[in-house]
Simulated assay, not measured.
Amino acid sequence: MPRIVLKTLINAPSGVVFDLSRSIDLHKISTSHTGEEAIAGTTSGLIGMGESVTWRAKHFGIWQELTSEITAFDPPRYFVDEMRKGAFRGFRHEHIFTEENDATLMTDIFDYQSPYGIFGRIADALFLEKYMRNLLAERNRIIKEFAEDETKYRTVLM
């Protein structure tokens, strides 16, 4: 099972970073290149414990749907979303927020299992793990951009 770990230092309070990380609206902005839309469940605003969202997006030229649910929630330090339905055999995404001086260290731990057995493992090695890492890194870049600019984060959180 591949594991992707990303650490992003953000010059903003942990509460702001936590909320931007669970913002459906900011997620749409960070994945606009995939045409991602929230089509069921919590489709805008902030997602919370026990809530789910179904996303529709185009990856590798194919429209796909994926439903994830918030399964752990400890604001503003931690939350977890897990796939309930979608293209993967499964995934678990931990979001950890640690205050460091006047900044927040945001750590993503993304564990996933590709479908199709050996063919899925080959896809991981050839392109999928890199694709997922880049998708998460772009999401984190957008979170950092908005968190460090009060004018921007207010457009999403207010």
Rank of each mutant, 00 (worst) to 15 (best):
M1Y: 12
P2L: 02
P2S: 11
R3P: 09
I4R: 01
I4D: 01
V5Q: 15
L6V: 06
L6E: 12
K7F: 02
T8C: 12
L9F: 07
I10W: 00
I10L: 03
A12L: 07
A12W: 02
P13G: 01
S14H: 13
S14K: 15
S14R: 15
G15Y: 05
F18P: 00
S21I: 00
S21N: 07
S21W: 03
R22S: 08
S23V: 01
I24D: 07
D25V: 04
H27F: 06
K28P: 07
K28N: 02
I29V: 14
S30C: 03
T31H: 07
S32G: 05
T34I: 06
T34W: 06
G35V: 10
E36S: 14
E36D: 13
A38W: 00
I39G: 09
I39T: 12
I39F: 04
I39S: 08
A40E: 11
A40W: 03
A40K: 04
A40S: 11
T43D: 09
S44A: 15
G45T: 07
G48V: 08
G48W: 03
M49Y: 13
M49N: 13
G50Y: 01
S52Q: 12
V53C: 14
V53M: 05
T54I: 08
T54S: 03
W55I: 05
W55G: 00
R56M: 06
A57T: 07
A57F: 14
H59R: 09
G61K: 08
G61D: 04
I62P: 04
I62N: 11
W63E: 14
Q64R: 11
E65H: 10
E65V: 10
T67W: 03
S68F: 15
I70Y: 03
T71W: 00
T71Q: 00
A72I: 11
F73D: 14
D74P: 06
D74A: 10
P76D: 13
P76A: 01
R77K: 12
Y78H: 05
Y78M: 04
Y78N: 08
Y78S: 10
F79C: 02
V80F: 05
D81Y: 02
E82C: 12
R84N: 12
K85Q: 14
K85D: 13
K85T: 06
G86Q: 04
G86H: 02
A87S: 15
F88R: 02
F88A: 02
R89H: 15
G90A: 09
G90E: 05
R92I: 09
H93Y: 02
E94I: 08
H95G: 01
H95E: 07
H95S: 06
I96W: 01
I96L: 11
F97C: 05
F97N: 09
T98H: 14
E99V: 14
E100N: 10
N101L: 08
N101I: 09
D102Q: 15
D102G: 15
D102A: 15
T104R: 00
T107G: 09
D108S: 08
D108T: 04
I109M: 07
I109P: 03
F110Y: 11
F110T: 01
D111S: 09
D111F: 05
Y112W: 04
Y112D: 03
Y112N: 01
S114L: 12
S114K: 08
P115D: 14
P115T: 13
Y116K: 11
Y116E: 13
G117P: 06
I118W: 15
I118Q: 13
F119K: 13
